[in-house]
Design a protein around this nucleic acid. Structure first.
Lengths: 229, 229
DNA sequence: TAGTGGTCTAGACCACCAC
DNA sequence: TGGTGGTCTAGACCACTAT
């Protein structure tokens, strides 16, 4: 008789997937369910709350709890530090700075990060290797207005990602996945052919409304981002 | 003084991101925090549990709660029904069945789904359009050993995705994202050029250890999957 | 306005595991 | 083995919103 809320959750989930309660159906309220399961309402509440969190049911005050007609299927992806990702695969991690420049903020970047005035940004390009094979090409832009100390940082030995993690935590981030074909420069760095399809992750981060950084991460050919749910 | 657990959560998060508690540090225990915040231990517990769920801290009995040294960054992606995704963008959804065949299970599919013996599978290819523009090319494989009724289903008007949702819920799924270049056939269906980079989502689903289906979803050129976290 | 979920409380017992 | 988090309870008040 331990972890009662898990049992309640399992049972309710079972009834939903088995069709006892079909799509759109109204479930009994928490008091009734608590009586049925012989537990406290708080226990039912937690079970139901987690089911709602997983996108299986929808809860509204007064309206009650309903089975979602088309369950909002969602998956969680872990966004690993590239070094850890490589080392986690048992490979030797190596980092190299390719280029570094300080320039006026390009318009497209200002638009993307919602910057008001065009100060300067630190633009870095780097490579991450696993066992000497190119793993990821990083195209990093750091807002110097928000992080002036980045201009002094030494990115020869430490990647901007790890530097940023140690320096400034972020509060909000937006991430996108898409596909692109390798242009000459990227192809050379990633040791693939021009025109090869590559997986691209883009991330913008903010700390309390202040834009911190925007990064394009281009993965080696054949990279797959996988998760179970 | 409402939703106290959110306030507690916010405050603890603030202290972590501001460095009051650094990476690896041990946080006060729940009883002490409850006293500090003048609330019940259950309230602190919920706040801390959610922070742990978000990957900011790590909790162990007896050992206490510690700030994770490298926060496990994770993002949630909603896996929408393609019809809803298209309609959600204000476009008209249209579906078309391209091809349908019943064949012996190919070896690569058997390996991928962990099928033991090679029965037959239903292989469907379909197109999904938004306002008459190609949106997604679907390459669907359904395990007939687990779902014999799929052989009789009419996929001329209803997409396999929606049919499956109504027919069998799944319990486990694996999803992968990657990039590929358009081959002649796909390029024709998606109205793009051969060699264009396309975003690919692959999903395998099981229901209580029984493999249900494997699908390759190739999105139109320029598709981006985005989320905030 | 009434019904439902959202949350808090104070107390309790228990499981785990680092010390 | 003792301290810590994990969970349950019974009751209470409140916020939201469908009707």
């Amino acid at each position: 008789m331990k972890t009662a809320f898990r049992d309640v959750k399992k049972d309710i989930r079972r009834r939903i997937v088995q069709g006892v309660w079909g799509a759109g159906d109204l479930l009994p309220n928490e008091v009734d369910l608590a009586q049925e399961f012989q537990c406290a309402r708080a226990t039912v509440n937690r079970a139901m709350r987690e089911l709602a969190d997983e996108g299986l049911v929808e809860r509204k005050r007064k309206a009650g709890t309903r089975v979602l007609s088309s369950p909002v299927r969602q998956a969680r992806f872990h966004i690993p530090i590239v070094r850890k990702e490589i080392e986690g695969r048992g490979a030797m991690y190596r980092y190299a700075l390719v280029n570094r420049e300080i320039i006026d903020t390009p318009d497209w970047l200002r638009a993307r990060l919602g910057l008001e005035q065009g100060k300067q940004v630190l633009h870095l390009t780097c490579m991450h290797y696993g066992d000497s094979s190119p793993y990821q090409y990083e195209d990093r832009w750091i807002n110097l207005a928000a992080l002036p100390q980045a201009a002094e940082a030494d990115f020869d030995s430490v990647g901007p990602n790890e530097w940023l993690i140690a320096e400034v935590p972020y509060s909000d981030a937006e991430i996108s996945f898409s596909a692109l074909t390798a242009e000459a420069d990227v192809a050379r760095h990633l040791s693939c052919a021009q025109g090869d399809p590559l997986f691209l992750a883009e991330r913008s981060t903010w700390f309390e409304t202040r834009a911190i950084t925007y990064v394009r991460l281009v993965f080696h050919r054949g990279y797959r981002m996988t998760t179970r749910y």
